[in-house]
Write a protein that binds this DNA or RNA. Structure first.
Lengths: 356, 356
DNA sequence: TTGAAAGCGCTACCAC
DNA sequence: GTGGTAGCGCTTTCAA
């Protein structure tokens, strides 16, 4: 059969000397200049069809792949974007990273994920590493970004976007923020509207996520509903199942038992529901709950959990778009701040039986 | 106060022309040759203390950071390792990535995570990209790696390790495998030993994870326990809560109701338990379950789930170590295959009440 | 103990 | 339509 020609085209004709073929190997093989090879590769200059064909044949024959490092060295572009996050094992960050990747890959950019383990020292190292490696842009997600961080990036002349956690005050750089106060407020009003008070708030520990911002959302939700906050029902606990379980157990032993419990994340809520159930309470009949993050586990528990969805994928995409504006669309205007709205996903933990 | 000197040392004295300082800027500033600067940086050649001091002062003054791209261009090493995974949003992969990172970072390597979205076309692209960017090594995790993949890597002369899914037959390259058959077998024997038959197996869909390998583990567990497999109780369902719920609902409507249910992952098990509970069954009183993966949700459900822990972090670390042997410790011997054992984490779903 | 200079593989400016 | 060649910023001979 006549399989010979095409098949042979892809075969490495070069003596295998361990060295990858370079552009000048191709030029020599095709009998043209490196300039010409470069131009058939880039298409930045017309090359006659016959020469093109020759060159392409040589490229195939030698299995030539341009060395991106050398390319970057000249062009000062790496077509790589770094996303720096505190902890890849945390629920939301992988989804954010996917969003970034989804937006970037079609445009020929690679996304490299860097994990700092929530350690500022490692963050600094990573920042040095990515700037030294000359990535085209950096997405800092889930950090309260400091001016020092920004200075490192600016000095290295690499574009960046900050996303994720709401900072006390956003710096003069591009930001993507989930509208968490509104999310908490929605949850609070929803719960109060359906079940009334007393209302408890189980917040996360400060420094381990957006603790304060969610509490303030709760408070404004209460204000909007015209209710006073009972400070005895406001607790800061670890962002964990155990934290929620413990807190609800304590509330149940306390002077005021809440009718509604607004939780700063789903783990707290799920733990809280478990504690309520352990004491023989019905959820939501005796005590209603909302969570935050809309994790999968919330759909798998006996009483499915009403939760705030913050669309981390979309947050990632938004970061990527802001960054692309700067690194490939030439935007160099003032910093932009984009907000991503949340949605309340209502499930059984806040749905009176009659409504089912 | 005498803060002047140190503070000023870190200040950029160079007129800000937008260009980052290079090694020759430092040389000029210090009044030495670039060679000397290079050697104080690398320590590969003795430099007189006074010269060293001069150079270091200039480095600080100019805030010089060596350009890693240029460095890589000469040295052909990037000190970057890529880990390629099918889906960063899947439970286990982030943990694997952390394991890799934990092992690599102390040695000065960066870990860049690449997500293929489970798409072989994207996998090929990523492989091309990663080799063109000349990473020092690649960890392919969670793929049934093909010889074609291996060929790409080998031709590019980049070291690699395959980890995660058990392939039908491992290729002639370094592999890290979780000992899944033994894990399933343990779970099966555990369940049978405590509750006996009939025993059901709810496996995942082929092509969407290690479906066959887990089923074969189940079968050998049954054989070890001296029980026949009732084929009516062996089902392949999606690796999801809904898949498990549906399957158990069907089993309950069928001719044989299982006493024990071995599930190929935790989602299936949790969904299955929900279905059992919906029909008024007690878990484990009427029907006992085991899962696989030991996800967090398994500790948050009403009846906590017995599950197989496969130590993905350790799998990642093992991959990293094998890779390091090749890229920095000069190992070039034959392919090595390392297995990571699993443990059965016993919880309430398989613990008779008396035992609690 | 120090320097000059030749590249690493590529792009782009100039020339023809 | 095509080619020569000067760098990108660094490391590493070779020479002093």
């Amino acid at each position: 059969m006549a399989t010979g020609d095409q098949a042979r085209g892809a075969v490495d004709e070069q003596p295998e000397d361990g060295r990858r073929p370079t552009i000048s190997d191709v030029a020599a093989h095709a009998g043209v200049s490196v300039t010409t090879v470069s131009h058939v590769l880039s298409g930045r200059r017309p090359v006659s069809p016959s020469t093109q064909a020759k060159v392409r044949r040589s490229i195939d024959a030698l299995a030539f792949r341009p060395n991106e490092i050398a390319r970057s060295m000249r062009s000062q572009r790496t077509h790589t974007v770094a996303i720096v996050i505190p902890n890849i094992a945390h629920v939301v960050y992988p989804v954010v990273a996917r969003g970034v990747n989804d937006e970037l890959r079609p445009l020929g950019y690679q996304t490299a994920i860097y994990d700092t383990d929530g350690d500022p020292r490692i963050k600094a190292e990573v920042l040095q590493a990515v700037t030294a490696r000359r990535v085209d842009g950096v997405i800092m997600f889930g950090f309260d970004m400091t001016s020092a961080d920004a200075a490192v990036l600016e000095e290295a002349d690499v574009a960046f976007v900050n996303g994720g956690l709401n900072a006390a005050t956003d710096g003069p750089w591009d930001c993507v923020r989930s509208n968490q106060p509104a999310g908490m407020q929605d949850a609070t009003r929803h719960l109060v509207g359906r079940f009334g008070g007393p209302v408890a708030f189980l917040g996360g520990m400060p420094g381990d996520g957006p603790a304060d911002i969610r509490e303030s959302g709760f408070r404004s939700g209460m204000a909007a509903a015209g209710l006073e906050v009972d400070e005895r029902l406001v607790r800061r606990v670890p962002y964990s199942w155990e934290g929620g379980r413990h807190a609800v157990a304590e509330l149940l032993a306390g002077p005021v038992v809440p009718r509604s419990v607004v939780c700063a994340n789903d783990l707290i809520a799920i733990g809280g529901m478990a504690a309520a159930r352990d004491r023989g309470l019905d959820v939501p009949g005796d005590m209603a709950f909302t969570g935050y993050d809309n994790i999968e586990a919330g759909t798998m528990v006996a009483t499915t959990l009403t939760s705030v969805e913050s669309y981390p994928n979309e947050q990632g995409r938004a970061c990527a778009r802001l960054l692309l504006d700067r690194i490939s669309r030439g935007y160099s205007g003032p910093a932009r701040h984009v907000g991503i709205d949340t949605d309340l996903i209502v499930r059984r933990s806040s749905t009176p039986r009659d409504d089912v």
